[in-house]
Amino acid sequence: MTATPPSVPIAVSTAARSVPPAQGPRRWACGGPALGTSVVLGGLLAQEFGAAMAASLLPQVGTLGIVALRLTVSAVVLLAVCRPRVRGHRRADWAVIVAFGVALASMNTLFYQAIARIPLGAAVTLEVLGPLVLSVVTARRAASWLWAALALGGVALLGRGGLDSLDGVGVGFALGAAALWAAYILLSARIGARFPKADGLALAMAVGAVLSLPAGLADAGGRLLDPVIFGLGAAVAVLSSALPYTLEMLALRRLAPATFAVLMSLAPAVAALAGYLVLHQGLAGIDLIAITLVVAASAGAVRGSGR
């Protein structure tokens, strides 16, 4: 989700509620599930290759700079497209918006701090533990704990010598992002119940941008205004946020939510591919096995959750 909402398995039901329900055969029109699968995979590729592009920008603008640039551009795009209503909301609604914005800004900051220190595939594998643990807990089924054990086995294999081979600080940041991803999912459900369409996400993204911009400007300074860096940062925002969100919404018109969730469980594998192709981050055979175990555990957990 990479730290890129709303690509999370357990949030599928929330995302599906924001899509107009399909009626009869029309649900499978215009390509049906085959096209829906392609759309999901396209969104995943955009999301993880956007994260890889962001990692390549970290030496130029720093973690706080890229977070500020990404959230600000994403907020501008979402506000322009959604045009959310600002007036008329209750204080409780704004409290959820602010909490959602804080979660977005914090999750992105921790994730980018992680990929500055450990390979992208490992970071996403660790981060996806947040949604995985949440789906296991909410499922309340004994079989779910078997999937959790499988995921833990995969995490234990990460790196040639296990987690000890990875930067400890980077691992900590990735696990912190995982916890915030779980918080994001819970807040996403509340946002979906209080605001129509993507209005809540647009407002929360604006809050996240406001929170991250001062620190980003202090960290990167005038480098954020460099035309090349700004253009690449804008591309990161589109690839990591706007494009995946749009593709996921289209996919949910053609796929059953459970199928969509299983496909989204491929995120660690796609991230590993992006890290290899864009950042030249090689993975040992045992690392690939670890990622495969976590992907299998995520897919099994969301298939068996019944939620």
Rank of each mutant, 00 (worst) to 15 (best):
V96L: 14
F49L: 11
T37Y: 11
V96D: 10
G88Q: 06
G208Q: 02
R253P: 05
T72F: 14
G62A: 01
P257R: 08
S38M: 15
F230G: 08
G306A: 06
L79S: 03
G168S: 15
A51N: 09
F260W: 11
G43K: 00
A34W: 15
L293W: 07
A301N: 07
A103V: 14
D199T: 03
R223W: 08
L58S: 07
A54W: 04
L120V: 09
G231K: 05
A179T: 12
L71N: 02
A3N: 04
W28C: 14
G216L: 01
A11H: 06
G162W: 03
S56V: 09
S135R: 08
L279E: 12
G36W: 09
A123G: 02
W145E: 13
V236N: 02
S13W: 07
G176T: 06
G161H: 10
Y245A: 15
L217P: 08
I185L: 09
V128F: 15
L293K: 11
G222H: 09
L283A: 14
L110K: 03
A301V: 11
G282W: 09
R223S: 11
V76W: 05
I291Q: 01
L69C: 11
A51V: 14
V228R: 14
G304C: 05
A297Y: 05
F49G: 01
L132Q: 06
F173M: 09
T37I: 14
G300H: 01
G65P: 03
S305A: 15
H89F: 10
R307W: 12
A16L: 13
G62R: 00
A290C: 07
A218K: 10
Y184T: 10
A182C: 10
A123T: 02
L134R: 03
S13I: 12
A46S: 13
A301Q: 11
L120A: 11
R27I: 13
L41W: 07
G153H: 04
A274C: 07
I185R: 05
D226Y: 03
R83G: 09
G192E: 05
A92V: 12
L58I: 15
L175F: 07
F173A: 07
A80T: 10
W145M: 10
A80Y: 04
L239C: 04
Q281I: 07
R194D: 08
T246M: 11
G285P: 02
R194G: 04
T292L: 14
L150Q: 10
L157H: 02
T4D: 15
V67L: 05
L283Q: 13
P84H: 08
G231W: 04
